[in-house]
Design a protein around this nucleic acid. Structure first.
Lengths: 209, 209
DNA sequence: GGGGGTATCCCATGTTTGTGGTATATTTAG
DNA sequence: CTAAATATACCACAAACATGGGATACCCCC
């Protein structure tokens, strides 16, 4: 019997997963909490499950921070990150912080069950797109730079952001209006699927752009 | 229709895999050779398959060397290493040389078929024990920086900034008030002699902190 | 015991950023 | 040629940020 805990803020998903796992004859869901804080409140040596399914995008403490706390206290526990993010940074931060698996939320219930069984058996499981990212991390040698979706002007703006310039300073150094800078940045955010400067800087410095 | 090539010296395994794949209605086995040399002799733009199943322990040129030759000439091809080795060095050498997947020879035919489909679809697939090795590789990569002038709490805040979190989110994930976050950030700026988030993120990612 | 550093919290003010619009000229691709 | 993409520019509003204060409490060291 494999004991499993779920930390997921979406009530519908959490309860659906809980019901599915509980209906399996080799699994039991010992906890289903909407946040890391709620989960930590009931976690101790007695209640420690074999496997923890942890969302990343949680209210309050993030799933990654939560995992760091949990693995620091219980190094042997198996944690599966369970999320919508395919962002390289989040993946590698999770892996470095001790995750044993990384499943996307579009994973089917049977696949999820299989992942739990595999990880409980000492293996590891990643959704294929995640595995691909991990692979590509090793392929560092031959990268195609043609993958950038940004135009030259947009790349120029990004460089300004990376250099720590404000919109006003970018406008000055490119001799365009600050409003134009704002428009470019809106388009950049749309293309990169981000919502703040920090993400652009991180992606740029990590070679994702 | 996915075209697949097999490079495997064991006649029994090679022919069994070839027959199985050919019997699938969405796959065709375009080549089944006992060595890299035999395979290279028939490989060109015309015969290039979508996916190559490559053994590592081959007579003559090893599968890893063969893969390096093939990926150098055809960067887009998907190669799955197919072997008995769980040796870390062989795994990472394969991944670094451009493998898109890594299957153990005890993999069932249906799982192999699924792996080929996943990899052809842009994902990636590793047998669970391999994935575990890869995970552990990241777990080992936790390092500390001794030169940092920042306190642990301040580094925690910096990490939040790098992750693209707002002050509010950092406050939430660290369970402190947003005002405390602001105070910490004021102190961080003073210590690092900077005046905006962007500079902190850049310094952090470039290893200056 | 006092001083320095850390961690916590609050207020106020002005600036910057994020996001939703709209709009025009130019270039590029189909 | 028409449609799409690009580069330019503006408005408005809410949220987030940067910076200046001040305050309490803890701990360590001299």
């Amino acid at each position: 019997m494999i004991s499993v805990a779920i930390v997921e803020d979406d009530d519908v998903i959490r309860e659906a997963v809980r019901e599915y796992l509980d209906s399996q004859d080799n699994m039991i869901c010992t906890a289903a909490k909407p946040s890391v804080e709620h989960f930590l409140a009931v976690l101790n040596e007695e209640t420690l499950p074999d496997v923890i399914l942890m969302d990343i995008g949680l209210p309050g403490m993030s799933g990654i921070s939560g995992m760091k706390l949990i693995t620091a206290k219980y190094p042997g526990v198996n944690i599966i990150m369970f999320t919508v993010y395919i962002d390289s940074h989040k993946i590698f931060e999770s892996l470095c912080a001790g995750a044993s698996g990384y499943l996307l939320k579009n994973t089917s219930f049977p696949d999820m069950k299989q992942a739990i069984e595999i990880i409980h058996g000492g293996g590891s499981m990643m959704s294929p797109p995640i595995a691909r990212k991990v692979m590509e991390h090793f392929h560092a040698g031959r990268k195609k730079r043609v993958t950038s979706p940004l135009t030259d002007k947009e790349k120029e703006i990004v460089q300004g952001l990376v250099d720590g310039l404000s919109y006003k300073m970018i406008a000055g150094s490119s001799s365009i209006s600050i409003e134009t800078v704002r428009t470019h940045i809106k388009n950049i955010y749309k293309k990169l699927q981000v919502h703040c400067k920090a993400d652009v800087i991180r992606k740029s410095l990590s070679g994702e752009i």
